[in-house]
Amino acid sequence: MNGMEEEPLVHVVDDDEAMRDSLLWLLEGSGHRVRTYADAASFLATIGPSGSGCVLLDVRMPGMSGLELFEELRRRELPLPVIFITGHGDIPMAVRMLRKGAVDFLEKPFSDAQLLQCIEEALARSRILRERRGRRSEIERRFETLSQREREVLMLIVAGRLNKQVADDLGISIKTVEVYRSRVMEKMGCDSLAELVQTMTWWEEERARPWGQIE
């Protein structure tokens, strides 16, 4: 949770030194924190699992290409939205990448305004992704603390079963159900049944959602 306060990082991965250097100059001039990498491998070696920010990625690079790096980031479910930069446009490829969650596909030469706007959007997305990831890991952490019986009770409550029904389902007394229920509410940090249902529903949805996708 301490990452929330941290300034987001713009990662620039480009094999052209002048591009890296000039992007560093441009983006720092606009108040961003920037890190540059000459290739995909050095980037992957540096980044940790947390930390917000975005990636400016050259499509054509020696070694691992921008597209391959993009796939790797998706696989790792890092909250780092990707903006592609290319010297030579390929519409079908661009469409494919956007579908997969890339923020944009910028063709050189691009205007600084266009780039900065893209970065703002990417960082916003990054924040959302981070929040979601935080909330999700919080839920998961709490859920982990539940015992097997408590999880069974939780599932039945969320599904709308009354205490008496739960007691019948599980073959325990209503009293016992009530004890489990209060323990679940406490462990999941929810004050009401409505809140619990909402939390569980969001978690369900979040797990089903492809990475990087914003509603």
């Binding site: 052209d16 002048a18 591009m19 250097d21 000039s22 992007l23 100059w25 441009l26 983006l27 720092e28 001039g29 606009s30 010297g87 030579h88 050189k108 030469p109 691009f110 205007s111 600084d112």
Partner: peptide, 16 residues
């Protein structure tokens, strides 16, 4: 495209 984009970046960065 590479040097041109770089030049633009340097200029814009300087301007901001």
């Amino acid at each position: 495209n590479q040097p041109l984009a770089a030049i633009a970046n340097y200029c814009r960065g300087g301007m901001s």
